[in-house]
Design a protein around this nucleic acid. Structure first.
Lengths: 252, 252
DNA sequence: CGAAGCATTGACCCTATTCAATTTTGGTGG
DNA sequence: CCACCAAAATTGAATAGGGTCAATGCTTCG
């Protein structure tokens, strides 16, 4: 049973067998389960140790004094946080479990050990950090420049492709536990308009969203709608007419 | 003549004399001047070596296929880029000189040397990276949740305070070379509305923006308008009624 | 002194918000 | 298995925040 993070890191660097074993081991030690909606780390807290999200979805978010909330990014199985947290400073944002989640807490020497003993893996970790920052920038671009419809399409593409990278999506279908309210907080729009926007996309036969599952009927077209430029995720990102076929063709 | 970056890093960690000397030296070697509006690094390029921005302003930005452009952040004197660039991957965004700028190119072993020989300085560099990421998140929050007026006020606060950290601002006044068009691209709004928003803030006696200089008449009030929570910059951030007085009181 | 870029203004319009009501879903306990 | 409740999804109508278009004035700089 290969953990999700391994799939993701393989996309960045070829990993040696010992590195994969070590990774699988640290990803199965110090596990902790957290119930849905619980904050893992709150704005103002001291930063904690590094973690891998093993199962479930989490979010980073920021709250304004008056209660408005912006979801800053979505953490999927295989994602790391908080890197760099080790330098005692305080959190500028919060992290919360969206669904029930399982976390693996990493030892403080995780990065050092990776550097010393598994060079390729360390490089892959840096790539991952780099991609994480690129995702953040893409969100800014979406929020600043894309219309509601484009933003929605873009987020659906991102979350589908990122899940595909960790083997959680296939044939145009993937888990999608975000409520419309949460989508609204991520996209900087109102729940009402999220609903209407989703209906438009559905009516056009592009996507379907029910029972916490997303189905993308036409990924290529959805990407066109989103002005989605896959470069920033730097990995497998084929599409082809029907998203069910042609699941290969890595850009890396 | 202490370089701007030294002022900033001092805000994060007490620096030893040898560290400061080394920093001043690397900040004065391998200098390069670039004219206004020139791209330093373009979307799709391979990432280059690390640099310090010595003088002038630069921007990170991202362009959509159809030409829409989002400014992702503003680089001020003393800012570093691109950290982590060393791992051969391609740029997901561009960096351009906004004004004429002076850059110092850093050797590839810059971070390693810092780690080996100037521990406090290395820590300060990590803090800086951390703050840079926090700024990015704050922009997302602005773009997603704040109104045009709040966003504008917030950006003015940010750029004033960041300049104060590198001794470029004082008594409510600082350089401000952004055009209204560029402000629009940073704030995700149109130039026309930027103009109207600025006029509102001016009419209320909060700010003035002319001859590439920003004057903030009432920082405390401007922050209130912006829902500005200074924690994310983790440094000097007093205000007090009139922003001209009481330039002390560090939060770090 | 001319031209290009930037700032400003007015009028109109549209995307997305607000408010409020209704229906559906999912989870819980009896 | 059904009844119940809270949370989420959906709908409609009215509205506002900010965009669009187009014209004019102002700078700056070669």
């Amino acid at each position: 049973m290969v953990p999700h993070i391994t799939h993701k890191l393989r996309g960045f660097e070829e990993l040696e067998e010992p590195a994969e074993q070590w990774l699988a081991e640290v990803a199965s030690r110090n596990l902790r389960d957290v119930r849905p909606k619980v904050d893992l780390l709150r704005q103002g807290d001291c930063t904690g140790p590094m973690h891998i999200l093993i199962e479930g979805w989490a979010i980073r978010y920021k709250t304004l004094e008056d209660g408005r909330r912006q979801i800053l990014s979505v953490l999927l199985p295989g994602d790391l946080f908080d890197i760099n947290g080790f330098m005692a400073s305080s959190m500028d944002h919060s992290i919360a479990a969206l669904t029930g989640v399982t976390l693996a807490r990493l030892d403080n020497d995780f990065l050092d050990t990776a550097r010393r003993e598994h060079a390729a893996l360390e490089k892959a970790l840096w790539c991952d950090i780099h991609v994480t920052a690129a995702i953040q920038r893409e969100w800014s671009t979406s929020l600043g420049q894309r219309t509601a419809r484009e933003r929605m399409a873009h987020l659906l593409c991102e979350l589908y492709i990122r899940q595909r990278q960790v083997e959680l999506a296939d044939g145009g279908r993937c888990p999608f536990p975000l409520t419309q309210i949460e989508l609204a907080e991520a996209l900087g729009m109102t729940p009402v308009y999220v609903n209407r926007t989703l209906q438009d996309l559905r009516r056009e036969g592009l996507v379907q969203l029910e029972h916490k599952m997303l189905t993308i009927f036409d990924l290529a077209q959805l990407k066109r709608v989103a002005l989605f430029d896959s470069g920033y995720l730097k990995i497998c990102d084929d599409d082809g007419g029907a998203s069910a076929e042609k699941e290969s063709d890595y850009a890396f």
